[in-house]
Design a protein around this nucleic acid. Structure first.
Length: 441
RNA sequence: GGAGGAGUGGCAGAGUGGUCGAUUGCGGCGGUUUUGAAAACCGCUGUGGGCUUCGGCUCACCGGGGGUUCGAAUCCCUCCUCCUCCGCCA
């Protein structure tokens, strides 16, 4: 979430940033009003609390003295807290009890205001970086680079949903078992899935210095709040019932971001780079009917995720590096792609800057998003309390970044469609030969 | 699933109702000593928030939440996590 102090002190800049995201900044004024009230009451509470603490301490001393001298005077702390002089210790205790109740009431009220502020703040997206192009929606995205050429076969290329039938793409089976959007692969595609995962992980761990992680696929609600999926995207999430209160992860970003939640990291250990293979579960609630043929958009898919925790000074640089790591996978697979820089209006909730990688698949004739590389700045770190000890010995918030490296289904689509020949054979790129065990699918 | 035990500052580990935000050790920082280093000795060393005349003042935090009490690390309830043993099962 955003820094309340930033909102307080740079209100206009915050509002302008949010406006670039088409976010109604009205909630900012509400937050500011609540914040003012919060601080006002907090000061009041602390004064009373201090008086009570002093008086409570004095009670102990006083009782000790009373044992030796029944005429020991009432300590001034008690008189000050109560606003009057009690006749004896019993009256003092009774008075302090009431005083304490009063304090709890204020405390409760402050707590409620705090929750109100938090709830609102959690719904406010991150501010776009100054580098982020300004735009309303996906039409404002900017193509930063294009790599490779889409093959131009001398025949009409088939889409993967037709081609895939020969290689074990059995959507009806998945549908029967679980429902639509849960693909079932038998034989070649199942093996290709495994080959791709291995290639990705080997590449990122051996060449790019990422540490491989294996994470839980179900997480607590709190974990989703840390990385920003909740409370905003409740309807996207699969949740387990029967009192388990667990959610299926929509991406490995979720568990990976929480690895260092609530900790102060050693600056010398940064940046920390993790990669993890996990299945991802998404309801895709908002995207009904859009690009759903074949395995273009599914409820369960595999992905290798890259995640970096670093210092603010390094995050821009790490963002470029991370994006390059994802791009190089596409280059290894010799698939044509382009890098889009998302504009302010199209960026994900927590991102301050984001690149999407899209691969071109000739069967469907479309650019398909296979990776989204985001720099979250300190937005996630603030929620998850991920900090580092800086040279000046201050604890500061880390910056977090992540990106897919890569998502499987759409890469499979591109492999099938771009590498097909007139007879429907699919010749695999060199990098996959050893992993797949054959040169053709 | 059953029975026990434990969660305290960067780490280790005291503390069972008041003067404890917390003894001590290690680590870290600064200093004395030394040609330099080590050793020894001395001092400092948690986090988050509010107020501030920027000198400070103050509140909260001993796994999370709630309660008892004038007062809780300490007592009670509850949840979470870890460990040990038993059972069951990949």
């Amino acid at each position: 979430m955003l820094d309340i102090r930033l909102i307080r002190e740079n209100t206009d800049a915050v509002k302008q940033g949010l406006a670039r995201r088409n976010f109604d900044a009205g909630v900012i004024d509400e937050v500011l009003k609540l914040d003012e009230k919060y601080r006002e009451q907090r000061t009041r509470l602390e004064q009373k609390q201090a008086a009570l603490n002093a008086a409570s301490k004095a009670v102990g001393n006083w009782m000790g003295k009373l044992k030796k001298d029944p005429a020991a005077p009432v300590p001034k702390e008690i008189t000050e807290a109560l606003g009057s002089t009690p006749k004896g210790p019993d009256e003092a205790r009774e008075g302090l009890r009431l005083f304490g109740d009063q304090i709890s009431n204020i405390d409760r009220m402050i707590g409620e205001i705090g929750v109100e502020i938090d709830n609102r703040l959690r719904m406010v997206p991150n501010l776009p970086s100054p580098h982020t192009p300004v735009g309303k929606d996906e039409t404002g995205n900017v193509v930063r680079k294009t790599w490779g050429e889409a093959p131009k076969p001398g025949f009409a290329p088939k889409a993967h949903w037709d081609l895939g039938k020969h290689y074990g793409l059995e959507l009806e089976v998945g549908g029967r078992i679980s429902g639509s959007g849960f693909p079932f692969f038998r034989g070649p595609l199942a093996r290709l899935e495994r080959a791709l995962v291995n290639l990705y992980l080997d590449f990122h761990t051996r060449e790019n210095g990422y540490t491989e992680c294996w994470t839980p696929f179900m997480v607590r609600r709190e974990t989703l709040v840390n990385s920003g999926q909740l409370p905003k995207f409740e309807e996207e999430m699969y949740q387990l019932g029967k009192g388990d209160e667990l959610y299926l992860i929509p991406t490995a970003e979720v568990p990976l971001t929480s690895v260092h939640a609530d900790s102060v990291l050693d600056k010398d250990h940064l940046p920390i780079r993790y990669c993890a293979f996990t299945p991802c579960f998404r309801r895709e609630a908002g995207a009904a009917g859009k690009d759903t043929r074949g395995i273009l958009r599914v409820h369960q898919f595999s992905k290798v995720e890259l995640m970096v925790t670093t210092t603010p000074e390094r995050s821009e640089e790490e963002h470029e590096t991370l994006t390059r790591c994802a791009e190089r996978v596409l280059e290894l697979l010799e698939l044509p792609y382009r890098r889009l820089e998302l504009c302010s209006g199209d960026m994900g909730f927590g991102a301050q800057r984001c690149y999407d990688l899209e691969v071109f698949a000739i069967g469907v004739g479309k650019w398909l998003e296979v990776s989204s590389c985001s720099n979250f700045g300190d937005y996630q770190a603030r929620r998850a309390r991920i900090r580092f000890k800086d040279n000046d010995k201050q604890n500061k918030l880390c910056h977090t970044l992540n990106g897919s490296g890569l998502a499987l289904p759409r890469v499979m689509i591109a492999l099938l469609e771009n590498y097909q020949d007139a007879e429907g054979r699919v010749r695999l790129p060199k990098a996959l030969h050893a992993y797949y065990g054959k040169e053709v699918l």
